[in-house]
């Protein structure tokens, strides 16, 4: 699904930060109101916004929480120049927001396996909430079970566990993985996924994931090997516009754009994308191997 095109959402809207939550030593969640037009802006799980730090840069970021009264949040890992500047921001400081952009995760019947690798967890929080809502109130979509795999390099980099525990209900599960084994399962989220798939014999599984692209590529291969389990994977690329004209986020060989045809891609499309897990473009438009 694609969002309706609305030109009014393609210019940054400066809005003050109303709360900041320190998730761990390198991740902060910034909460603000996004009401650039007279009517409420509908944001769906997995969609992204362009976030402008005036005086610095503007970067695409997934919306981590979609709240009431136009309140939304982004969760930012302090990993680069712009994200580092964002970490210095205080309540009341203004950031520019435009969007939302792209398609979104859609809850599917059956068992949901949701994987977040590092800060990728922020992008899947709202689909976990959506799945949980459907599970509690099964009108059109029936969710049997939510298995959440939350992975990080080490214990101190894990995030959102308390929040996940609150969202997840009986017979759901939260699997924690760290590369160094400092907490939970020692190993990658993908190894945990394999273990779960080899063990369980549930029908109609859907895998939702966001994280480093190499992880996503492995998730995809594992799912393809397990009778082509449907996936919804959230890809990330450099972009200038977010609405389909700069071309930096084009994927080979189909020319699909991460900003508009994605960022969530399913099996049929991922099978065709030769760039997937391999090639990105930098801000000049030059390709590089990831």
């Amino acid at each position: 699904m694609k969002p309706p095109y609305d030109y009014r959402l393609n210019k940054p809207f400066l809005t003050p930060i109303i709360d900041i939550i320190k998730e761990n030593n390198r991740i902060k969640t910034f909460i603000f109101e996004y009401n650039p037009i007279s009517e409420p802006v509908k944001i769906n799980p997995g969609q992204f916004v362009m976030v402008w730090v005036p005086g610095s840069d503007e970067i695409p970021m997934s919306v981590s929480h979609i709240g009431k009264n136009s309140k939304i949040s982004i969760s930012v890992a302090d990993v680069g120049e712009t994200t580092h500047l964002m970490h210095q921001l205080k309540i009341g400081d203004k950031i520019g927001i435009r969007g939302p952009y792209g398609n979104w995760f859609t809850s599917q019947n059956g068992t949901a396996i949701v994987i977040g690798g590092g800060i990728g967890m922020a992008s899947v929080l709202s689909i976990i909430q959506d799945l949980s809502n459907h599970k509690n109130d099964p009108i059109d979509i029936k969710i049997d079970k939510i298995i959440c795999i939350n992975g990080a390099k080490t214990k101190s980099e894990l995030c959102f566990n308390k929040e996940l525990q609150k969202i997840l209900k009986e017979n759901d599960s939260l699997e924690i993985c760290t590369d160094d084994g400092s907490r939970g399962f020692k190993g990658f989220t993908t190894e945990k996924l394999k273990e779960i798939l080899n063990k369980g014999k549930s029908n109609s599984i859907t895998v939702y994931a966001c994280g480093p692209e190499k992880m996503l590529k492995t998730v995809f291969q594992i799912c393809e090997d397990h009778n082509k389990i449907p996936v919804q994977l959230n890809l990330e690329r450099m972009m200038r516009c977010g609405f389909g004209i700069c071309g930096l986020c084009a994927l080979d060989p189909t020319g699909l754009l991460v900003c508009r045809d994605g960022p969530i891609f399913t099996n049929e499309i991922l099978r065709e994308i030769t760039d997937f897990g391999k090639i990105h473009r930098d801000f000049s438009g030059k390709t590089y191997l990831i």
Binding site: I245, C246, L248, D252, P253, T254, G285
Partner: peptide, 12 residues
């Protein structure tokens, strides 16, 4: 406009 990736030009 869209003129950086060969795939975009193929698509157009």
């Amino acid at each position: 406009i869209l003129g950086v990736a060969p795939s975009s030009i193929v698509r157009l």
